[in-house]
Amino acid sequence: MNHGALIFLSAFVTIAFSWAGLVMTPQLQLGRLEPVPQPAPQPDYPTARPGLAQQGLQVYRSMGCAECHTQQVRPEGDVERGWGQRRTVAQDYLADRPLLVGSLRLGPDLANFGVREAGRFAVPWKYATETNHLEETEAWLYRHLYQPRGQAPRSIMPSYAFLFERRPIRPGQSADAMALRVEEGQGGRWPEQVVPGPKARALVAYLMSLRADAPVFEAPLPGAAEAAAKQSATNAPAGGTTNQVSAPISTNTVSP
């Protein structure tokens, strides 16, 4: 019984078929996505991340954050949880290379972590601040990275204290604005402060750049169509379909 050729052929056909369905077809369909044009003052979506945030993506990758955090808002449940206004689609990941969607949720989803509107946060616990200024949120995030249980008592996130540095405060210097802790110098030494290192700063810049809330065709914001219809009904733009005739053509007379 020598069916080597047959076995090889069936294995080849099976693999080729699944490759065509799972790799080639999605590539043909989504391989040439372009950023979505947005109304005038906004840049097209998604934009490339600014430099520090781009470095932060590499920190996010090297620290293995994607092992426990996803960046994917699912259509069911996640919107109700407040993890995003809409589901995420392929368009949202155009600026990410490598793609860090993640597959396991030991921590909360981070797809909309950078959305800072008060009362709407991408994390299940709420930040302590009322106004959610960028600096306040960043300070919260530094403290959370340094000592997760200090901010969220039931968090199982490991501490990333090694991303922070101890620096002496020299005479005439004041403590860094982002310093997490200031220790009095013992025995005549200079006092020391714990400040975020370059990797922590890059990581926080990356996390603050995460947002998937721009309207895209595939996943319109809920209620957008109704709101636009209501607005066009009251505002009456130039493209209505009303058929008003100001003067009937029959008044045309042949000039003598």
Binding site: P75, A225, A227, A229
Partner: peptide
Amino acid sequence: FNPRVYTPYASFEKVEAANPKPAT
């Protein structure tokens, strides 16, 4: 199998209906 159709929309027409119409 339209690449622009995602759940919860079942067809391209439904995606289109959920999008705001252009003003003009």
